[in-house]
Amino acid sequence: MESVLQTFLRAVPQATAVWIAVLLVLAVAVAVAALPRGVTTPPAPGAGNRLADRLESAATEAAEVAERRRAEWLAAQQAVDETWAAYEQASDDARRIGATTAYPLMSRRRKLGENVDRQRYLHRAATELCRTQDLSIAQLNDVYAHRGWNPRLHPVQQEPVLRNAVRAHRFDAYQRAVERERAAWRSAEAAAETLRGLRAEASAARLRGPVTEAGEQQVYAEHWTSAESERRTPVELPAAA
């Protein structure tokens, strides 16, 4: 009797271990059965994310476009400063020469052929001012056609008229430079906004992970269209005054 009891006591721990193992197996089986069907392990962040790759590539190109647009705007801004300085110089010259020629000339009978000489002087003076870009081609044409110009005036009287024309030409050049600077600024701002949008969308795409091909094409097209148009649309740089 004592031997049977000892044998039973030695078998109790082994049976307990077997029952514990069986219970663990059943618990695991129940947990697996409770999982929803079709669930897969999500991919690692950024793995195979073609949308993010394409957006980052587009952002790199957009950064180059934005840099060019900013350089063009800075050049246009410099042109504004230069044309304004040229206008101020022309305005000072016109006032100075106008003050020195304020007194009328003594009237006298003109020599034979003097009107021809005066006309030649006007043509030579206007041509030289046009060559130095102080007068426009249109103004020079008006001089030769005598539209708004009196070729019979004395050269002393012609000088303030010429300087006023130079001042008007320089002011027109300044206004055109201002318009180009404003257009360059708008283009630079649009390029910078496109770059910011692409970078933000690329970061969001990395966090979201891979998307369907249709969703990838839609998101990419929305951002790439603006970046591509910025890259292909040149901005006219201001010409020298």
Rank of each mutant, 00 (worst) to 15 (best):
R54L: 12
A71Y: 04
L55W: 00
V65E: 02
A47N: 09
L23G: 10
D53E: 08
V39Y: 05
P45S: 05
P42F: 07
R54T: 09
G38T: 09
W19C: 14
V65M: 05
V30G: 11
A33F: 13
P36D: 00
R54E: 08
N49E: 03
V25F: 14
P45T: 02
E67Q: 12
A58Q: 03
A52L: 01
V39H: 08
P42S: 05
R68D: 02
A52Y: 00
A63P: 04
T40H: 10
T60P: 07
L55K: 00
E64W: 11
A34H: 09
V30C: 14
S57I: 02
V25S: 12
E72G: 06
G46A: 01
R37A: 12
A71N: 08
L24A: 15
A21R: 05
N49A: 01
L51W: 02
R50G: 04
T60Q: 11
R68Q: 02
V28C: 10
P36C: 00
N49P: 01
E56W: 03
A33D: 15
A71S: 10
P45M: 02
A27F: 04
A47H: 12
T40M: 14
R69G: 06
E67C: 13
I20T: 15
T41S: 12
A62N: 03
P42Y: 08
P36T: 00
V22D: 13
T60K: 13
L26R: 09
S57N: 07
A31P: 03
V39I: 08
A63R: 08
L26M: 14
A21P: 02
V65D: 04
A62H: 04
V18M: 15
W19D: 15
L51N: 00
W19R: 14
V39N: 07
E56C: 01
L23D: 11
A31Q: 08
P42C: 05
L24H: 12
A21D: 06
A59Y: 04
L26D: 11
V25Q: 12
P45V: 03
E67I: 12
V39D: 07
A44G: 14
V32L: 09
L35I: 10
A63F: 06
W19F: 15
D53A: 09
D53I: 03
A34N: 04
G46N: 04
A66S: 01
E61A: 15
L35N: 10
E64T: 11
T40C: 15
S57E: 06
L23N: 08
S57H: 06
G38R: 07
N49S: 00
L55C: 00
L35Q: 12
G38Y: 07
P45A: 04
A29Q: 07
P45K: 03
V65W: 04
A44C: 12
T40R: 11
I20N: 13
I20C: 11
R69L: 06
R68C: 01
E61D: 15
A62K: 00
V32K: 06
P36M: 00
A27S: 09
V65A: 03
A29V: 10
L55P: 00
V32I: 11
A47G: 05
V39A: 07
G48Y: 01
L24Y: 12
A44V: 14
G46H: 05
R68N: 02
A31M: 08
P42L: 06
P45C: 03
V32A: 10
R37W: 13
A59K: 03
A47C: 06
